[in-house]
Design a protein around this nucleic acid. Structure first.
Lengths: 207, 207
DNA sequence: GTTCACCCTGAACGATCGTTCGAAGACGCC
DNA sequence: GGCGTCTTCGAACGATCGTTCAGGGTGAAC
């Protein structure tokens, strides 16, 4: 049925597709481009995938689920709402920086999916957004009233974090930890007027 | 040569194109789609425009120039660096909210241009980014050291502001002024730890 | 040695793409 | 009426798109 070799080949196809989609954009990437980039014949792609849109869907859903799962793991043993928020941001940027191509495709080609594909990804998106909103509500309970509307704050934070595919270079002179610290400081300082101390900021998370 | 009627027709074509590009995306919008949406024949479009890419270029460059010009106007009589920054944000969001389709095309289809078109828009983009960086440098001089790296802060602010095409509804329950105030509070609170007082925040700018 | 499921391919399908071309209305000016 | 310029159009061009299909290897199972 689903052999290991088959799954591995599909994974590598998804990796190639994510890279090309990120470079050229989903719509202007042809299946022939992907065939060339992956070394598989044009028809051979359709042995592993039903359609071009399924390729996009698999990239988006798998990586989004990974972000969601990573968040749940990191939040599992967090008690302080503020720490939860910091870990939420840290998880998001960590995954983003180590999967730039995939996350660019997830952020930038959100509107390219249709039908059930779109519905399913949107469900995950709603769940993820809800998780952040709940954390923000907790933060407000324990650290006084927020300075801005919660929904505006949530989407502003997503904007800060998801925009990085437009400028951030994970191999440049700003390390991921520094980026994460900066975003935490920026957001927390404005949201609840809290100067974030060094100790509270996220650090390198091994593994 | 360039009659008024001609220019007006081109303007309306650009408005239609911006709307459709924002809805369906540049790449998956066909010239036939634009012909249908504008009531002009397919061949008729090419009387006003040399190519599909020129349509995208005109939308991006004209609106970007408008944002740039609006910023220069609003900054002309500002002395305090903090006030400059607030006006910069206010101008950006004001224009964004009143030209959502055009600005979505500008933000989202930035990578769709090529050659000289791309070079020209990128020149404007660099100028605009430089303006913000200069303001931030001024703010740091007059309001103490920043809490985060200036370049990271600048792009985070652009992220907050440009991401709004993904969620913001200008006709919803969050007015543009409220949005602008929120972004100012969020950014300034985190950037220099300054709680922004009501009086310092932007208000409705008539005209 | 035959069978069979799995993996992959060249060639083609119909559809749609951006763009062009020659010509025909519209309209003021002589 | 005739002329020239500005607008607009139907029809077609070659290219490229996503997808399909019939078939050829391959290697383990019997």
């Amino acid at each position: 049925m689903t052999s290991v070799a088959h799954d591995q080949k599909l994974d590598s196809l998804l990796a190639v597709a994510a890279r090309v989609f990120a470079e050229r954009g989903y719509d202007s990437t042809s299946m022939r481009d992907l065939a060339r980039a992956s070394g598989v014949s044009l028809a051979g792609l359709y042995y592993y995938v039903q359609s071009k849109e399924e390729l996009l869907f698999l990239i988006q859903s798998r990586n989004f689920e990974a972000v969601l799962e990573g968040m749940r793991d990191r939040l599992a043993d967090a008690t302080d709402p503020l720490e939860k928020l910091i870990r939420f941001i840290d998880n998001h940027l960590d995954y983003f920086a180590s999967h730039m191509a995939e996350m660019k495709v997830l952020s930038h080609e959100a509107g390219a999916l249709t039908g059930d594909y779109l519905t399913q990804v949107n469900t995950t998106k709603r769940e993820y957004t809800r998780a952040l909103m709940d954390i923000l509500a907790d933060v407000e309970r324990t650290h006084g009233p927020a300075h801005v509307n919660r929904r505006v704050a949530a989407y502003s934070l997503f904007g800060m974090m998801n925009w990085i595919y437009n400028w951030y270079d994970p191999f440049g002179d700003v390390a991921v930890q520094a980026l994460s610290q900066s975003v935490c400081r920026l957001f927390l300082g404005g949201y609840i007027g809290l100067p974030v101390s060094e100790s509270a900021l996220p650090r390198t998370t091994a593994g």
